[in-house]
Design a protein around this nucleic acid. Structure first.
Lengths: 224, 224
DNA sequence: GAGGCTAATGTCAGCCACTGACAGTTGACA
DNA sequence: TGTCAACTGTCAGTGGCTGACATTAGCCTC
């Protein structure tokens, strides 16, 4: 039973392409409606109607009302994790994180724009922060992602994430910086992908000197 | 139009007492059902029926299904914030936080037990952690509480929470310790209020020497 | 290129969370 | 005791979400 569906980016047949188009259209319509008239004030029927599909079809693409809001972030995160796993083990942890972010932004910037205008993504970002139900989901997603990253880093460095605090601490710092970068970007005027990329880069450069070192050659696990 | 309802703890008339009893019964029934058969598997009709009130009445006491889950924590937090506001300005920030927690635990321990058995509270704690929807709400509540505490601390010390990072940093550390204490308690066997109190105390004593100092006499705002 | 296979979609019925409106009941208080 | 206001129940309705079943439409083979 060799995987019948390639699942890769390149759309094999018409069916795949059609599905992708429906999915993208749902995301765009949903975000457009949410940002215009508010998340709670928008019904799924409206979204489905805008894309000319049934409500039932919406729920075949997204498990619930929130999921469509985070679809784009999901893409970015998946790309980031994939890239992080691929970084050579010789890189120091923070360097790997940094490189992965940069590569992720580079080759997903275009992909994002093909789904939704970046400006809409930015408006969505602000909408999330002003909708309690979405803030909650956002926080949970963030904490889950942090956990995943910490485990990846620990594996790279061949450490136990439950006994050595360094992976989680590093990831916490890293995530904190990423969060601030995202926040500043959300408040600013320049809503290009390039701008958030640069913002992230400069912020990461700030903490790098302070915590980036090889965890195997420089001083033993110093938990003081 | 002077506030017609005293709203204080002491139950004035029969009406107040009856309301309190209904509320407590709803909390107890809800947590009992949730922990026994799962959060999602429990309907509000079941909870209402167990207390012998209508579903509509449930929603007059709690805004939604989640709220009842956090009712006890809400009590503890309110008591803590109240106590923190009352601490003398002469106390160093972390000392004030520490004292407020201790006082809050001391005089609310009994109040909790009057509403639900502590053992049920502990089971609820574990249920929250294993229910994604509740984890999300829990995280949002925590971050909101952190923000409140940081503002309170900043006001005490006469600082601007948006320019001076110290209040938020201290509160982040404090909250982190509290979270760990809660987690350890949840995993342990001893589900008494006294045990979480002592756990908290000892954990806080660990970080105290590291970060507790008077922010006005010891070294200027050192943001390095 | 006709026909079978299967994935994708539409339709329908139904559960549950949640809300507004209105009516009935019951403490509070003169 | 009677009036008022608070509390509660009932009912109808909306919206999120799901299972079951019928229908449509790519895909693949002969």
């Amino acid at each position: 039973m060799a995987t019948p569906t390639p699942q890769t980016a390149a759309p094999g047949g018409l069916r795949e392409r059609k599905k992708q188009r429906t999915r993208d259209a749902l995301i765009r319509a949903a975000l457009e409606l949410f940002t215009e008239q508010g998340y709670e004030a928008t019904t799924i029927d409206e979204i489905a109607e805008a894309v000319d599909v049934s409500q039932r079809t919406y729920f075949r693409y997204f498990a619930n009302k929130e999921e469509v809001v985070f679809a784009v972030q999901e893409m970015v995160e998946a790309r980031f994790l994939e890239e992080l796993s691929a970084r050579p083990a010789s890189e120091a942890p923070l360097t790997a994180l940094r490189s992965a972010v940069m590569v992720a932004w580079d080759d997903i910037g275009g992909a994002i724009e093909s789904v939704i205008p970046v400006e809409l993504h930015m408006r969505s970002y602000r909408m999330i922060e002003s909708t309690p139900a979405l803030v909650a989901v956002h926080l949970r997603r963030s904490s889950e992602l942090e956990e995943q990253i910490a485990r990846l880093i620990a594996r790279r460095e061949d450490l136990d994430v439950d006994t050595d605090p360094r992976p989680r601490v590093l990831v916490a710092a890293f995530s904190g910086v990423m969060r601030v970068a995202g926040k500043v970007w959300g408040e600013g005027q320049d809503c290009s992908v390039a701008s958030i990329r640069e913002l992230t880069k400069s912020y990461l450069d700030h903490i790098a000197p302070a915590i980036d070192d090889d965890w195997h050659t420089a001083g033993e696990a110093d938990t003081r």
